[in-house]
């Protein structure tokens, strides 16, 4: 009896001891590591890539290329931007980067006064080199060091050539343009016009719109009403393509009208793969990213002085429906 009680006591004690030791080990093993305090040397090069359309396939590719190159060069590159095309926030990012005295700014060009004022006065005040990427702004107005991206004139020309080869020479073609006439669309228009001018019989109509989705749809409605027999539509802004196609499909069969577009908008490739776009200008955003970082470094290191004001053009190609691999 006594022995049993003693044994019971000791067994209970040992069980509790076991759990206590386990709890103790749990406590001691606890991962107490705070994020390591690394003091990065302050003199490393800080670059910033600012876009209006962060997290779109196009700009993800730009960022990918830029980060790759930055890692190679040993610089720290920060990608900032907004999800929506919020101009105010975008410009604030730019201003913040300027006041934060980064070493170089790679920015999607924005053909507005405030953008130009920031790059021309503020960036120049802190002597921060600004390189526009994918979208350019006239150098005289922005004092950008250079432009890295597609040759928009050439892109317009290629797309217009594809268009005229596919539609009747007498058909009507609609160009959809941002009513604020941004520099990039103006460039594209120059290229397109250079082709259309050769085909005088072609009925080219210019429709303008705001950038809001409703406005685009409204503009599309208007042009469909005015020109029910339109043969081809060419939005100068890739962002217009998706709402436009959306509106067209709600009214008529899409096969009745050919659509030609650029690829620098989020929804382009799904539409193209679905066969809704006749021909597409395919740009090389990764090359843009890579090249822009490379050029900033060249400028910072004084290797290439000055940079080519006309810009550095990355390769473009034309892909046609059901022929995605074709290169023109």
């Amino acid at each position: 009896m006594r022995k049993n009680v003693t044994a019971l006591f000791i067994i209970g004690f040992l069980v509790i001891l076991f759990f206590t030791v386990r709890a103790f080990v749990d406590v001691v093993k606890g991962d107490w590591q705070a994020p390591t305090q690394v003091y990065v040397e302050d003199d490393d090069t800080r670059l910033v890539l600012i876009t209006q359309q962060i997290n779109t396939p196009f700009f993800d590719a730009v960022a990918r290329g830029a980060i790759e190159q930055a890692e190679m060069e040993g610089a720290s590159l920060e990608i900032v931007g907004d999800y929506s095309q919020n101009e105010e926030a975008f410009l604030n990012h730019l201003e913040l980067a300027i006041h934060a005295k980064v070493d170089g700014i790679i920015v999607q060009g924005k053909d507005t006064d405030r953008f130009k004022e920031l790059t021309k006065i503020k960036a120049a005040f802190y002597s921060i080199p600004v390189i526009t990427i994918a979208e350019d702004v006239p150098m005289e107005e922005s004092l950008r060091r250079t432009y890295v991206g597609s040759d928009q004139e050439e892109a317009g020309r290629m797309l217009a050539n594809a268009l005229v080869s596919q539609v009747d020479a007498t058909g009507s073609v609609i160009l959809l343009m941002d009513q604020s006439h941004p520099y990039i669309q103006t460039e594209r228009l120059i290229g397109i016009d250079s082709v259309f001018n050769k085909y005088a019989s072609l009925d080219v109509v210019m429709v303008e719109s705001d950038t809001s989705r409703e406005q685009i749809k409204e503009a599309t409605q208007r042009l469909l009403n005015l020109y029910p027999d339109v043969e081809a539509i060419l939005p100068l802004d890739a962002a217009f393509t998706e709402p436009m196609i959306d509106e067209i499909t709600s009214r008529m069969r899409l096969s009745d009208v050919r659509i030609y577009s650029f690829d620098d908008a989020p929804d382009i490739y799904p539409l193209f793969n679905a066969g809704k776009i006749e021909a597409l200008i395919q740009q090389t955003p990764e090359d843009m990213g890579r090249l822009s970082v490379e050029l900033v470094f060249k400028w910072l290191n004084g290797e290439t002085l000055p940079l080519d004001f006309d810009g550095y053009h990355t390769p473009i190609s034309l892909i046609k429906r059901a022929d995605t691999d074709a290169h023109d």
Partner: peptide
């Protein structure tokens, strides 16, 4: 400063300077 906030922190300091 730690590995995650080098960029914004440097910005921060520079902003204060600015």
């Amino acid at each position: 400063e730690h590995q995650g906030n080098h960029y914004p922190l440097t910005n921060y300091i520079n902003l204060v300077d600015s």
